[in-house]
Amino acid sequence: MQRVRVKVCGITRVADMQSAARLGADAIGLVFYPPSPRFVGIEQAAAICAATPAFVTTVGLFVNPTYEQVCEVLERVPLDILQFHGEEPEVFCCRFGRPYMKALRMADDLDVLAAAEQYPAACGLLLDSHVPGVPGGTGTTFDWQRIPAQLSQPLILAGGLDAANVSDAIATVRPWAVDVSGGVEQLDADGRRHPGIKSEAAMAAFIEGVNRV
């Protein structure tokens, strides 16, 4: 079986990117959605990308942006892949001269195959948990049995993944890649998460869980 790729999303610091890369992450995600607690500004993102080593993919996450907003980011930040996490149509996603991933939130009434057919040019489909009003980073899983086996695009599994469940997730779903954000963030003494601040130990445990399958 091929090795499952790992994307660590919600990176906000150069040091966290360097730790993720050193531990074996294949990609890092930068969130350009201002309401998110993991949002990064253009200068911050440019600094992270400038320090990213070769063969680590940089992914920019957007939620229902305007064309001008994406172009403004791309003028300063050399992203490899765009990730659209809202209701963006295929024609919009294809306008920027970059490969793109499309995120689908697994609402109870979502027809995954029908939704996937709307994005034939996507280099990957990211399936995430659905929480009304929250486009991502929910920390909750969804029923992996709902994922159809006949998706034509590479599948990136997201939603509530951490070191404790990622091995089971991979064994069940057999995805191309897994995407983690909150599941590798630092926790304080009370167990409260620090959004955007990654724990090197948690990232190491997560990647070990991926490699163990």
Rank of each mutant, 00 (worst) to 15 (best):
D111N: 13
V91R: 14
G60A: 08
P154Q: 05
A121W: 13
G196W: 01
Q2H: 13
K198H: 05
C94G: 13
L155A: 08
D111H: 10
V178D: 04
V59Q: 05
G191K: 12
R13E: 05
T138W: 09
E117V: 07
Y100N: 03
P34R: 14
D179W: 04
P37A: 04
C9I: 02
K102N: 01
E75D: 10
Q44Y: 07
P37H: 06
L61E: 08
S36V: 07
D111R: 04
P53K: 01
A115E: 13
A20Y: 01
T138C: 12
K102W: 03
I81P: 11
G159N: 03
E72F: 07
V70M: 10
F62A: 11
T140S: 15
R95H: 13
T138S: 12
V77D: 04
D162F: 04
L104D: 02
D190K: 15
F62E: 09
A171R: 14
Q44I: 00
R38Y: 06
I81E: 07
S152M: 12
R98Q: 07
D188I: 10
V4K: 01
N64Y: 12
R193L: 14
A45E: 10
F62I: 01
I170W: 11
R98S: 08
I170N: 03
R105L: 12
W144R: 02
L157P: 10
P175W: 00
R98W: 11
Q145A: 15
E75C: 14
G41H: 04
T141A: 07
I197H: 01
I28G: 08
P35A: 08
L125M: 04
P35F: 06
G139S: 00
A177E: 01
R174Y: 12
A103W: 12
V91C: 14
A171W: 13
T140F: 15
M106F: 11
N165M: 08
N165W: 10
G133I: 08
L30D: 07
R105Y: 10
V213W: 03
R192K: 14
T140G: 13
C94D: 15
L82K: 02
L74H: 08
G124Y: 00
L187D: 09
A103E: 06
L187N: 09
F39I: 13
E208C: 13
S36L: 00
A177P: 04
R22I: 06
E117G: 13
E72P: 04
R95S: 14
Q150Y: 12
V166C: 11
H130F: 15
L126I: 12
G191Q: 08
I11S: 01
A115T: 09
T58E: 02
R98H: 11
K102P: 03
R13V: 02
F206L: 10
V63R: 07
A27V: 08
Q83W: 00
R5M: 05
T57M: 13
E185M: 06
G160W: 14
D162C: 10
Y67H: 15
T12F: 08
L23P: 05
V180I: 08
G136H: 00
A54C: 06
A201L: 10
P195F: 11
A149T: 14
